[in-house]
């Protein structure tokens, strides 16, 4: 529709009787819509009430989305229309790209994209587009969730490019927890709990350790490291030598990572004879290295006196 022309003046819409918004008396949190928005919505209500799925309906949704991209109804109606009229879905993706970039935090766009890409049955171009989006906001939850859907839908778990890409994201910001979560997803997520091959286990342990050495006070790789050890059903003591590099009870004034102390406490707790050492580590956390969580560290100390709670 040409700018400045309203639907009621448009011969292409002359057969439609718009349904104005019913708001009741003195509605709360009412919005003083522009005439343009208000009219477009009245026509949307009308075509939806008629279950009309048409090219002009598609244009109408585009018009409304430009004014309010957070309108889930319009998105749902749009994807239903695309399906019903057998629209060109490649064209839809092309249209979606700039729209998504413009409305970075929008939720609906990503779900819509998922529906389209699922129907297209091809993930071609999607990785590049996601990369562009993450350049703007590298922890965007919807974008990462969409990437995970993509990996699962198209079986990209063991694709070397996927691992390379996420490694690049971690390289760029080693504290990007969303990237660490994605690494976990592609390495462990597709395994359904199946045993990790020795080579991959070693690769992942090494990678997390390498990242920790860059910035030991970064919790993301610590969570990852301990996650792998748990997944592989190894005793925590396999991390002892490494952990001592950053926190050693013999040098309580030279602790380089509270997360190392935390891990050390668990390592000692696992070795039944070392409970006093575990308590010392927890004391250091509670009194010096992570005092805002003192209640938690003290709670962990209490657990040490209840042997059954540790296992």
């Amino acid at each position: 529709m040409a700018p400045g022309i309203f639907y009621h003046d448009d011969p292409a819409w002359s057969d439609v009787e718009p349904i104005p918004q019913e708001d009741g008396e003195h509605p709360l949190a009412a919005i003083a819509y522009t005439d343009e928005y208000s009219e477009a919505m009245s026509y949307l209500r009308a075509v939806m009430a008629q279950n009309e799925y048409s090219e002009r309906g598609l244009e109408l949704t585009e018009h409304i989305i430009n004014m309010n991209p957070a309108h889930y109804t319009v998105w749902l109606y749009r994807s239903k229309t695309l399906e019903e009229i057998g629209a060109d879905l490649h064209a839809e993706i092309k249209w979606l790209n700039p729209t998504a970039l413009k409305h970075l935090k929008n939720y609906q766009i990503w779900h819509h994209r998922q529906i389209i890409v699922n129907k297209l049955d091809s993930s071609e171009g999607e990785a590049d587009f996601i990369a562009t989006m993450l350049e703007q906001d590298n922890k965007n939850y919807h974008v990462w969730s969409y990437r995970q859907w993509l990996v699962k839908r198209f079986g990209l778990f063991s694709k070397p490019e996927e691992l390379q890409w996420v490694e690049g994201m971690i390289e760029e910001d080693v504290r990007n927890n969303s990237a660490w979560n994605h690494r976990w997803f592609i390495v462990m997520g597709g395994r359904d709990g199946k045993e990790l091959p020795e080579a991959i286990l070693k690769r992942e342990l090494d990678y997390a350790k390498y990242a920790i050495r860059k910035a030991p006070q970064n919790q993301s790789p610590w969570n990852y490291l301990r996650g792998i050890v748990r997944y592989a059903k190894l005793p925590l003591s396999v991390l002892k030598a490494f952990t001592l590099e950053f926190a050693d009870l013999a040098r309580p004034d030279e602790v380089f990572s509270s997360h190392a102390l935390d891990t050390l406490a668990d390592i000692y707790a696992e070795e039944n004879s070392q409970k006093e050492e575990a308590k010392k580590a927890l004391d250091l956390l509670a009194t010096k290295y992570d005092p805002i969580r003192a209640n938690y560290w003290n709670y962990r100390k209490k657990l040490l006196d209840q042997p059954e709670a540790v296992s």
Binding site: A29, A30, I31, A32, T34, Y37, N68, P69, A70, H71
Partner: peptide
């Protein structure tokens, strides 16, 4: 709300 709150319509 004024018209620029249309994004809150849903």
């Amino acid at each position: 709300y004024p018209s620029n709150f249309a994004a809150m319509d849903a």
